[in-house]
């Protein structure tokens, strides 16, 4: 694309594009406005801007526990998904035959099946395994549904990886595990990091699975928000949403940064 690639686009097209962007983004900004309200119910600030609900959020035990739980679950399930997804993508890439195409397709099933159907299946399964309402249960479920993101991004990175580098590494005396560690992984790192970020976001704001298979001991942040919305329309909710959005946006910025570095 040339430097002035947008130069000859008509004003009509440009206005339409901005309109769509506003339509997508503006509802989110309302959350920020509501989160600094000075009133006792969900509303825009009337006379002054107040951070009382942020104070409330960060001093309330149940909210903090949920944030911590969500964070732990997201971290562990992301770690599992990244390792499994990366190894799966590399394995498929090395085989490079029809079976590996099939495996790659199979890996995408968790995001193709409607989450509610998937959650129902896991619920049935977890009853027998006694994994309901445990960290392990939710971590496994989130890790499995996080794997597709990692497989997609790592496979994309591998498509641009020169297979002769692997041959070069082996011919220079490196074992397969050394080749993996010293040559393949460093070269596909941007793809791995992208997958990691998406898997983390996926677990961090996942509600349906959390509703089905957890509820007492494990009470994630999205789950508590759901309950909060159903029971009392407390503006603390808006503060929580603002924090969630901030975390997600900063992760996406990190992803964009990693991708731009790959471009150099």
């Amino acid at each position: 694309m040339t430097a002035n690639g947008f130069g000859n686009i008509s004003i009509m097209t440009r206005s339409l594009a901005w309109l769509i962007i506003c339509f997508l983004v503006l509802p989110i900004t309302v959350v920020f406005a509501v989160s600094v309200t000075d009133r006792h119910y969900l509303s825009l600030p009337e006379s002054e801007i107040s951070f009382q609900y942020y104070r409330n959020l960060f001093s309330s035990g149940p909210w903090l526990v949920s944030i911590l739980q969500s964070f732990i679950i997201a971290c562990v399930s992301t770690a599992v998904a990244v390792v499994a997804g990366t190894l799966c993508a590399i394995g498929c890439w090395r085989l490079g035959n029809r079976a590996s195409d099939f495996v790659r397709m199979l890996m995408l099933v968790p995001i193709m099946v409607p989450t509610i159907v998937y959650a129902l299946g896991i619920y049935q399964f977890w009853i027998d395994l006694r994994l309901l309402d445990t960290y392990t249960g939710l971590i496994i479920a989130h890790a499995v549904t996080g794997v597709p993101y990692v497989v997609i991004t790592v496979s994309t990175a591998l498509a641009g990886f020169d297979p002769r580098l692997e041959q070069a590494s082996l011919s220079l005396g490196a074992s397969m595990s050394q080749t993996l560690r010293l040559v393949i992984i460093p070269n596909i790192m941007p793809g791995v990091v992208s997958g990691l970020i998406f898997a983390f976001i996926h677990s961090w704001d996942e509600l349906v699975l959390a509703l089905f298979i957890a509820g007492r001991a494990v009470f994630t942040l999205p789950r508590r928000m759901w309950d909060g919305i159903n029971e009392s329309l407390d503006p603390t909710m808006a503060a929580v949403a603002a924090v969630l959005i901030a975390v997600t946006v900063s992760l996406l910025c990190a992803d964009a940064y990693v991708r731009s570095r790959r471009g150099n």
Binding site: D162, R164, Q167, A168, L170, S171, L172, G173, A174, S175
Partner: peptide, 14 residues
Amino acid sequence: PESRNFGMVFQGYA
């Protein structure tokens, strides 16, 4: 390959 101890120079350098 890794046990043969052969140096190899590739077409595209690698």
